[in-house]
Protein backbone atom coordinates (compact mmCIF):
# COMPACT_ATOMS: atom_id res chain seq x y z
CA UNK A 1 0.00 0.00 0.00
CA UNK A 2 1.13 3.51 -0.69
CA UNK A 3 0.86 5.95 2.16
CA UNK A 4 -2.32 8.01 2.53
CA UNK A 5 -4.08 10.15 5.07
CA UNK A 6 -7.16 8.98 6.87
CA UNK A 7 -10.18 10.58 8.42
CA UNK A 8 -13.48 9.47 9.80
CA UNK A 9 -16.01 12.31 9.54
CA UNK A 10 -19.12 12.30 11.73
CA UNK A 11 -21.53 13.90 9.30
CA UNK A 12 -22.48 13.49 5.67
CA UNK A 13 -21.59 17.11 5.00
CA UNK A 14 -18.10 16.65 6.38
CA UNK A 15 -17.63 13.48 4.37
CA UNK A 16 -18.69 15.16 1.15
CA UNK A 17 -16.54 18.18 1.93
CA UNK A 18 -13.51 15.95 2.54
CA UNK A 19 -14.06 14.12 -0.72
CA UNK A 20 -14.60 17.35 -2.65
CA UNK A 21 -11.54 19.05 -1.18
CA UNK A 22 -9.09 16.65 -2.76
CA UNK A 23 -9.37 15.07 -6.17
CA UNK A 24 -7.43 12.05 -4.98
CA UNK A 25 -9.49 11.39 -1.85
CA UNK A 26 -11.49 8.16 -1.88
CA UNK A 27 -14.42 7.13 0.26
CA UNK A 28 -13.79 4.04 2.38
CA UNK A 29 -16.89 2.04 3.12
CA UNK A 30 -16.54 -1.69 3.88
CA UNK A 31 -13.22 -1.68 2.06
CA UNK A 32 -13.70 -5.13 0.63
CA UNK A 33 -12.60 -4.01 -2.82
CA UNK A 34 -10.74 -0.82 -2.07
CA UNK A 35 -8.31 -2.30 0.45
CA UNK A 36 -7.26 -5.25 -1.74
CA UNK A 37 -6.80 -2.76 -4.57
CA UNK A 38 -4.57 -0.60 -2.38
CA UNK A 39 -2.65 -3.64 -1.17
CA UNK A 40 -1.81 -4.46 -4.75
CA UNK A 41 -0.72 -0.85 -5.28
CA UNK A 42 -3.24 -0.46 -8.08
CA UNK A 43 -4.50 2.85 -6.68
CA UNK A 44 -2.84 5.71 -4.86
CA UNK A 45 -5.40 7.88 -3.08
CA UNK A 46 -4.10 10.81 -1.09
CA UNK A 47 -6.71 10.35 1.57
CA UNK A 48 -9.28 7.81 2.67
CA UNK A 49 -12.54 9.14 4.03
CA UNK A 50 -14.01 6.46 6.28
CA UNK A 51 -17.79 6.57 6.12
CA UNK A 52 -18.43 4.37 9.13
CA UNK A 53 -19.04 7.31 11.42
CA UNK A 54 -21.79 8.93 9.35
CA UNK A 55 -25.20 8.13 10.88
CA UNK A 56 -27.11 9.26 7.76
CA UNK A 57 -25.75 6.29 5.83
CA UNK A 58 -26.93 3.64 8.25
CA UNK A 59 -30.05 1.62 8.70
CA UNK A 60 -33.00 0.06 6.94
CA UNK A 61 -36.46 1.58 7.00
CA UNK A 62 -39.74 1.39 5.15
CA UNK A 63 -40.73 4.46 3.20
CA UNK A 64 -43.96 4.77 1.19
CA UNK A 65 -44.18 1.02 0.72
CA UNK A 66 -40.56 0.75 -0.39
CA UNK A 67 -37.43 -0.19 1.51
CA UNK A 68 -34.77 2.39 2.04
CA UNK A 69 -31.45 0.84 2.83
CA UNK A 70 -28.63 3.08 3.96
CA UNK A 71 -25.45 2.94 1.90
CA UNK A 72 -23.34 1.85 4.83
CA UNK A 73 -25.57 -1.13 5.66
CA UNK A 74 -23.40 -4.20 5.72
CA UNK A 75 -24.32 -7.27 3.67
CA UNK A 76 -24.73 -9.32 6.85
CA UNK A 77 -27.28 -6.84 8.15
CA UNK A 78 -29.26 -6.84 4.92
CA UNK A 79 -29.19 -10.64 4.99
CA UNK A 80 -30.32 -10.91 8.60
CA UNK A 81 -32.51 -7.82 8.83
CA UNK A 82 -36.08 -8.59 9.78
CA UNK A 83 -37.54 -5.87 7.56
CA UNK A 84 -35.67 -6.94 4.46
CA UNK A 85 -36.43 -10.62 5.01
CA UNK A 86 -40.10 -9.87 5.42
CA UNK A 87 -40.52 -7.38 2.60
CA UNK A 88 -38.00 -8.51 -0.06
CA UNK A 89 -36.69 -11.91 0.95
CA UNK A 90 -34.90 -12.30 -2.39
CA UNK A 91 -32.77 -9.28 -1.54
CA UNK A 92 -31.86 -10.75 1.86
CA UNK A 93 -30.89 -13.99 0.21
CA UNK A 94 -28.81 -12.16 -2.38
CA UNK A 95 -26.96 -10.39 0.43
CA UNK A 96 -26.46 -13.72 2.15
CA UNK A 97 -24.78 -15.07 -0.99
CA UNK A 98 -22.21 -12.29 -1.34
CA UNK A 99 -18.58 -13.26 -0.77
CA UNK A 100 -18.11 -15.13 2.46
CA UNK A 101 -19.18 -14.57 6.03
CA UNK A 102 -16.30 -12.21 6.81
CA UNK A 103 -16.83 -10.19 3.65
CA UNK A 104 -20.51 -9.86 4.51
CA UNK A 105 -19.60 -8.63 7.97
CA UNK A 106 -17.67 -5.71 6.46
CA UNK A 107 -18.90 -5.04 2.93
CA UNK A 108 -21.67 -2.52 2.36
CA UNK A 109 -24.44 -1.94 -0.15
CA UNK A 110 -23.21 1.51 -1.08
CA UNK A 111 -19.64 0.37 -1.50
CA UNK A 112 -20.68 -2.49 -3.70
CA UNK A 113 -22.80 -0.50 -6.11
CA UNK A 114 -20.44 2.47 -6.25
CA UNK A 115 -17.62 0.11 -7.19
CA UNK A 116 -19.76 -1.46 -9.95
CA UNK A 117 -17.72 -4.62 -10.23
CA UNK A 118 -19.11 -6.54 -13.21
CA UNK A 119 -19.30 -9.65 -11.01
CA UNK A 120 -20.96 -8.01 -8.00
CA UNK A 121 -24.40 -9.22 -6.94
CA UNK A 122 -26.20 -6.06 -5.82
CA UNK A 123 -26.30 -4.38 -9.24
CA UNK A 124 -28.67 -7.10 -10.45
CA UNK A 125 -31.07 -6.33 -7.60
CA UNK A 126 -30.81 -2.57 -8.02
CA UNK A 127 -31.74 -2.80 -11.69
CA UNK A 128 -34.28 -5.62 -11.52
CA UNK A 129 -36.10 -4.08 -8.56
CA UNK A 130 -36.17 -0.72 -10.35
CA UNK A 131 -34.49 0.81 -7.34
CA UNK A 132 -33.49 4.41 -6.98
CA UNK A 133 -30.02 5.35 -5.82
CA UNK A 134 -29.96 8.33 -3.48
CA UNK A 135 -26.81 10.38 -3.33
CA UNK A 136 -25.83 13.40 -1.32
CA UNK A 137 -27.19 15.55 -4.13
CA UNK A 138 -29.80 13.73 -6.22
CA UNK A 139 -31.65 10.54 -7.04
CA UNK A 140 -30.54 8.25 -9.87
CA UNK A 141 -32.75 5.56 -11.36
CA UNK A 142 -31.28 2.05 -11.10
CA UNK A 143 -31.42 1.73 -14.88
CA UNK A 144 -29.20 4.79 -15.25
CA UNK A 145 -26.79 4.15 -12.41
CA UNK A 146 -24.47 1.51 -13.86
CA UNK A 147 -22.81 2.88 -16.94
CA UNK A 148 -20.02 0.42 -17.68
CA UNK A 149 -17.18 -1.68 -16.37
CA UNK A 150 -16.48 -0.28 -12.87
CA UNK A 151 -18.34 2.84 -13.98
CA UNK A 152 -21.39 4.54 -12.56
CA UNK A 153 -23.30 7.77 -13.04
CA UNK A 154 -21.74 9.15 -9.85
CA UNK A 155 -19.88 12.43 -10.25
CA UNK A 156 -16.51 12.99 -8.63
CA UNK A 157 -17.03 13.40 -4.92
CA UNK A 158 -20.67 12.28 -5.08
CA UNK A 159 -21.62 9.82 -2.36
CA UNK A 160 -24.29 7.16 -2.33
CA UNK A 161 -26.49 7.75 0.71
CA UNK A 162 -28.90 4.87 0.26
CA UNK A 163 -30.94 2.83 -2.13
CA UNK A 164 -34.72 2.78 -2.32
CA UNK A 165 -36.02 -0.63 -3.31
CA UNK A 166 -39.68 -0.93 -4.39
CA UNK A 167 -41.25 -4.10 -3.00
CA UNK A 168 -42.07 -6.63 -5.72
CA UNK A 169 -44.85 -9.20 -5.75
CA UNK A 170 -42.29 -11.89 -6.35
CA UNK A 171 -38.55 -11.93 -6.82
CA UNK A 172 -35.58 -14.25 -6.77
CA UNK A 173 -31.88 -14.24 -7.47
CA UNK A 174 -30.05 -17.19 -9.00
CA UNK A 175 -26.31 -17.13 -9.06
CA UNK A 176 -23.72 -19.28 -10.73
CA UNK A 177 -20.52 -18.85 -8.81
CA UNK A 178 -17.09 -18.49 -10.31
CA UNK A 179 -15.28 -21.69 -9.37
CA UNK A 180 -12.27 -19.86 -7.91
CA UNK A 181 -13.26 -16.38 -6.77
CA UNK A 182 -16.88 -17.32 -6.04
CA UNK A 183 -18.08 -14.01 -7.42
CA UNK A 184 -21.06 -14.18 -9.75
CA UNK A 185 -19.99 -15.73 -13.02
CA UNK A 186 -23.59 -15.15 -13.94
CA UNK A 187 -26.27 -13.86 -11.59
CA UNK A 188 -29.85 -13.23 -12.60
CA UNK A 189 -32.33 -11.27 -10.51
CA UNK A 190 -35.93 -11.44 -11.60
CA UNK A 191 -38.73 -9.36 -10.09
CA UNK A 192 -42.43 -9.23 -10.85
CA UNK A 193 -44.44 -6.10 -10.08
CA UNK A 194 -48.03 -6.86 -11.04
CA UNK A 195 -47.97 -7.33 -14.80
CA UNK A 196 -44.47 -6.00 -15.20
CA UNK A 197 -41.40 -8.22 -15.01
CA UNK A 198 -37.86 -6.95 -14.78
CA UNK A 199 -34.85 -9.21 -15.17
CA UNK A 200 -31.26 -8.12 -14.71
CA UNK A 201 -28.04 -10.02 -15.30
CA UNK A 202 -24.77 -9.47 -13.51
CA UNK A 203 -21.42 -11.18 -14.04
CA UNK A 204 -21.98 -11.99 -17.68
CA UNK A 205 -21.18 -8.63 -19.23
CA UNK A 206 -19.02 -5.62 -18.47
CA UNK A 207 -21.91 -4.18 -16.53
CA UNK A 208 -25.33 -5.30 -15.34
CA UNK A 209 -27.92 -5.52 -18.13
CA UNK A 210 -31.60 -6.31 -18.61
CA UNK A 211 -32.97 -8.88 -21.05
CA UNK A 212 -36.11 -7.27 -22.53
CA UNK A 213 -37.08 -10.34 -24.53
CA UNK A 214 -37.21 -12.42 -21.38
CA UNK A 215 -39.07 -9.69 -19.51
CA UNK A 216 -41.74 -9.55 -22.22
CA UNK A 217 -42.11 -13.31 -22.33
CA UNK A 218 -42.36 -13.54 -18.57
CA UNK A 219 -44.86 -10.68 -18.38
CA UNK A 220 -47.32 -12.81 -20.30
CA UNK A 221 -46.29 -16.18 -18.84
CA UNK A 222 -44.35 -16.08 -15.60
CA UNK A 223 -42.98 -19.62 -15.80
CA UNK A 224 -39.45 -20.90 -16.48
CA UNK A 225 -40.61 -22.58 -19.65
CA UNK A 226 -41.55 -19.20 -21.10
CA UNK A 227 -37.90 -18.21 -21.44
CA UNK A 228 -36.28 -21.59 -22.02
CA UNK A 229 -35.74 -20.79 -25.68
CA UNK A 230 -34.51 -17.25 -25.23
CA UNK A 231 -30.77 -16.74 -25.29
CA UNK A 232 -28.68 -13.63 -25.05
CA UNK A 233 -26.05 -12.83 -27.64
CA UNK A 234 -22.60 -13.96 -26.55
CA UNK A 235 -21.00 -11.03 -28.36
CA UNK A 236 -19.75 -8.51 -25.87
CA UNK A 237 -20.05 -10.83 -22.87
CA UNK A 238 -17.09 -11.42 -20.57
CA UNK A 239 -14.71 -14.27 -21.21
CA UNK A 240 -11.93 -15.69 -19.10
CA UNK A 241 -10.22 -19.01 -18.44
CA UNK A 242 -13.22 -20.20 -16.45
CA UNK A 243 -16.02 -19.21 -18.80
CA UNK A 244 -16.01 -18.14 -22.42
CA UNK A 245 -18.75 -15.77 -23.59
CA UNK A 246 -20.90 -18.51 -25.13
CA UNK A 247 -20.90 -20.45 -21.85
CA UNK A 248 -21.87 -17.32 -19.96
CA UNK A 249 -24.66 -16.67 -22.47
CA UNK A 250 -25.94 -20.19 -21.92
CA UNK A 251 -25.80 -19.73 -18.14
CA UNK A 252 -27.88 -16.56 -18.38
CA UNK A 253 -30.81 -18.57 -19.67
CA UNK A 254 -30.30 -21.35 -17.14
CA UNK A 255 -30.02 -18.98 -14.21
CA UNK A 256 -32.95 -16.90 -15.42
CA UNK A 257 -35.11 -20.02 -15.53
CA UNK A 258 -33.95 -21.01 -12.06
CA UNK A 259 -34.67 -17.54 -10.70
CA UNK A 260 -38.18 -17.65 -12.11
CA UNK A 261 -38.71 -21.12 -10.72
CA UNK A 262 -37.50 -19.92 -7.32
CA UNK A 263 -40.22 -17.26 -7.33
CA UNK A 264 -42.61 -20.13 -6.71
Amino acid sequence: MYAFEYQRPATLADAVAALTRSEDARPLSGGMTLLPTLKQRLAQPSELVDLSGVPDLQGVREEDGALLIGAFTRHADVAAGETVRRRIPALARLAESIGDRQVRNRGTLGGSIANADPAADYPAAVVALNATVRTDRREIAGDDFFTGLFETALEPGELVVGVRFPVPDAAAYAKFRHPASRYALVGVFVARFGAEVRLAVTGAGPSVFRVPEMETALASDFRPEAIAGITVDADGLNGDIHAAPDYRAHLVTVMARRAVAACG
Binding site: L28, G31, L35, K39, L48, A76, D100, R101, Q102, R106
Partner: peptide, 23 residues
Protein backbone atom coordinates in the same frame (compact mmCIF):
# COMPACT_ATOMS: atom_id res chain seq x y z
CA UNK B 1 -3.35 -11.14 -0.39
CA UNK B 2 -6.81 -11.29 -1.94
CA UNK B 3 -8.94 -11.58 1.20
CA UNK B 4 -9.85 -15.18 0.56
CA UNK B 5 -7.95 -17.63 2.73
CA UNK B 6 -9.23 -16.53 6.13
CA UNK B 7 -6.02 -17.28 8.05
CA UNK B 8 -6.30 -13.75 9.43
CA UNK B 9 -9.84 -13.92 10.81
CA UNK B 10 -10.39 -12.14 14.13
CA UNK B 11 -13.49 -10.80 15.81
CA UNK B 12 -14.15 -7.08 15.74
CA UNK B 13 -17.00 -6.07 18.02
CA UNK B 14 -18.10 -9.69 18.10
CA UNK B 15 -18.16 -10.30 14.35
CA UNK B 16 -15.61 -12.27 12.35
CA UNK B 17 -13.64 -10.19 9.89
CA UNK B 18 -10.57 -10.66 7.76
CA UNK B 19 -7.97 -8.56 9.49
CA UNK B 20 -5.91 -8.38 6.28
CA UNK B 21 -8.73 -6.37 4.72
CA UNK B 22 -9.21 -3.83 7.44
CA UNK B 23 -6.98 -0.96 8.46
Amino acid sequence: DTSQCGACVVHVDGRSVKSCTML
